[in-house]
Computed example of a mutant assay.
Amino acid sequence: MADDEEIDEEAMAAEWEAMAGGDGGGDDQDAMAAEWEAMAGGGDEGEAEEEGVPGRVLDQNEIDSLLGFDGDMADGETTGIHALINSALVSYERLPMMDIIFDRMVRMMSTSLRNFTSDNIEVSLDNITSVRFGDYLNSIPLPAMLAVFRAEEWDNYGLMTIDSSLIYSIVDVLLGGRRGTAAMRIEGRPYTTIEQTLVERMISVVMKDMCGAFEPLSPVNFTFDRLETNPRFATIARPPNAAVLIKLRVDMEDRGGRLEVLFPYSTLEPIRELLLQRFMGEKFGRDSIWETHLATELWSADVELTAIMDETTMSLKDIMNLEVGQTITFNKTPTDEVVLKCGEIPMLSGPIGRSGNKVAVQIRRKAERLIENEEDQAMAGAG
C-alpha cells in the first residue's frame, strides 16, 4: 500500500511538471496551485487574495447599503453611492410660512371647487419641496396642461401644472358625467378647445383662492397669462434656477388627479423675509419693550454743549511764533450767530448775549441749516 501511494505521488508530480512545461518554475507552480484552488471551489477567494482584495462575498443587504438603497430613507436622507450621485442637488432654505399659506389655500379650494363643480371634492396638500426648474420640466408626465400666471405685485411669473387625470375628471364632471365612474381617457390626441376652456375656468378659481391665501401675508394679484401643453413653451426661469414646488391632490369620489404649483425663488424674493417667519407677524431681532425703554432713557440723558464763537485756520509755524500781547483776528461780529456743538456734532445756533450776570445763547435754529448755507455759499464763491 505504501509503495503504491509513493508511486501515485511520483506520477502526480511528474504530471504537474509535464503540465507546467517541464521547467518547474516557481511562478508557474503558483499559478497551477491557484488553478487547482479555483477548481476546488475557492477560485473567487484565491483570485481576490492574489489581487490583494479580501475574498468575502457581499450579501444583498450589504450591496443595498453600499449603493444607498437600503430602504432607510424615511427621513428623506440618502447614503452611499446614491448620496454621491445626488450631491449636485442644492439644499435651499426652507420657507415656513409657505406651509401656512397653502394649508389655508387647501381649505379655500375645497369650498370653491365644490361650488364650481357641484360635486364632493376633497383637496389635500402632499408636500412642499425645492427643485431645480429644469429638472421639474423634464419630470412632468405628459400629456398635461401648464398654466403660466403672473404675480403683478412681484413682477414675475409662476407655473401651475394639471395632470391628465384631473383634466379628464374636471371635464367629465362639468359636462354631466356619471358619478362614481372613472373618467375615460383618450390617449394620443391633443386637448380640444372645450377641454382647454373648462380647465382655464378651473385655473381661474384656483388662482383666486391663491390670492386669498397670500393676502394676510402680502396682498398679491395672480393673473392668468397663457396655457401650454408643451413644457418647452412654459419656461419661466433658467433650468438651473431653484424653485418651490407645491403638490396638491384633488379627489372627486373615484376620480381626481394632481395639481402642482411652482414658484421660482426669484418670484418669491420680494416677500422672502415674510416667508421666513414661523408665525404671522414675527419680528426678527426686535424687542418693542426694549426700544421704548431705550428711547425714554436717551431723551433723559445729559449732554454737554460747547459754544463755538468762531474758528480760524493757522499754520503750525504761525502758532509757534505767537508772543504775549499779539492779537488773533476772527471774522465774527457781535451780531453773528455762534454754533453749539456736542462733541464734534453741530447741534444748534443763535446769537450770543447776556442773561443777568451770565453769558447766554438765544436758540434760533438747528445748526445743520447753517452748515448747509455756508457750504452753498462756499460752492457759489468757488464757482
Score class of each variant (00 low, 15 high):
Leu146Thr: 03
Gly256Pro: 14
Asp172Lys: 07
Ile271Val: 14
Gly256Cys: 09
Glu152His: 01
Thr193Met: 13
Leu146Asn: 03
Val173Ser: 14
Asp155Val: 06
Ala183Phe: 00
Phe263Lys: 10
Val205Cys: 11
Arg255Gln: 08
Lys208Phe: 06
Asn156Tyr: 10
Arg189Cys: 04
Pro239Arg: 06
Ile167Asp: 02
Thr193Val: 11
Gly180Gln: 04
Val148Pro: 12
Arg272Glu: 08
Pro264Asn: 04
Arg255Trp: 01
Gly177Trp: 00
Gly212Trp: 01
Ile246Pro: 05
Pro190Asn: 06
Ser164Phe: 12
Asp155Thr: 02
Leu175Asn: 04
Gly177Phe: 00
Gly212Pro: 01
Asp251Asn: 12
Leu217Gln: 06
Thr235Asp: 06
Glu215Arg: 15
Leu174Ser: 07
Ala234Leu: 02
Val205Glu: 13
Glu215His: 14
Phe222Thr: 12
Pro240Lys: 07
Pro270Gln: 04
Met160Val: 05
Ile271Asp: 04
Pro270Trp: 00
Ala237Gly: 03
Pro216Asn: 06
Pro190Tyr: 00
Met252Gln: 12
Arg272Thr: 02
Gly158Met: 06
Ser169Asp: 02
Thr161Cys: 14
Ala213Arg: 05
Met210Cys: 13
Phe224Cys: 04
Ile236Tyr: 02
Phe263Tyr: 14
Arg238Glu: 12
Pro264Ile: 03
Ala243Asp: 07
Val220Arg: 15
Glu253Lys: 09
Val244Pro: 08
Ala213Val: 09
Tyr265Arg: 15
Ser165Gly: 09
Asp163Met: 10
Val171Ser: 04
Ser266Gly: 08
Ala242Trp: 01
Arg258Asn: 08
Arg201Ser: 15
Glu187Gln: 11
Ala234Val: 01
Arg189Ile: 14
Thr223Phe: 01
Met210Phe: 05
Cys211Gly: 13
Arg189Asp: 00
Thr235Gln: 15
Leu262Ser: 02
Arg201Met: 14
Leu198His: 04
Arg179Pro: 05
Val206Gly: 02
Leu259Ala: 04
Arg189Asn: 05
Val205Arg: 11
Leu198Met: 15
Pro240Trp: 02
Arg201Val: 03
Arg178Met: 10
Glu187Phe: 00
Thr223Pro: 01
Pro216Trp: 01
Tyr265Ser: 11
Asp254Cys: 00
Leu245Asn: 07
Ala183Asp: 06
Glu153Cys: 09
Val220Ile: 14
Thr197Val: 08
Ile194Glu: 03
Arg249Gln: 15
Leu146Tyr: 00
Gly256Ser: 09
Ala237Glu: 05
Phe233Asn: 09
Thr235Lys: 15
Val244Thr: 10
Met145Thr: 08
Asp225Gln: 13
Ala147Val: 08
Ala242Pro: 08
Ala243Tyr: 00
Leu174Lys: 07
Glu187Trp: 00
Asp225Pro: 08
Arg272Trp: 04
Glu215Cys: 05
Met252Ser: 14
Ser204Tyr: 04
Asp251Tyr: 02
Val171His: 01
Glu152Ser: 11
Asp251Phe: 03
Glu195Ser: 11
Arg179Lys: 12
Val206Thr: 11
Asp254Glu: 05
Tyr191Leu: 08
Phe149Gln: 04
Leu159Met: 14
Leu217Ser: 11
Glu273Cys: 03
Asn221Cys: 06
Val199Leu: 15
Asp163Phe: 10
Phe214Gln: 09
Phe263Ile: 13
Val220Asn: 15
Ala213Lys: 05
Ser204Gly: 09
Ser165Arg: 10
Ile246Cys: 12
Asn241Thr: 13
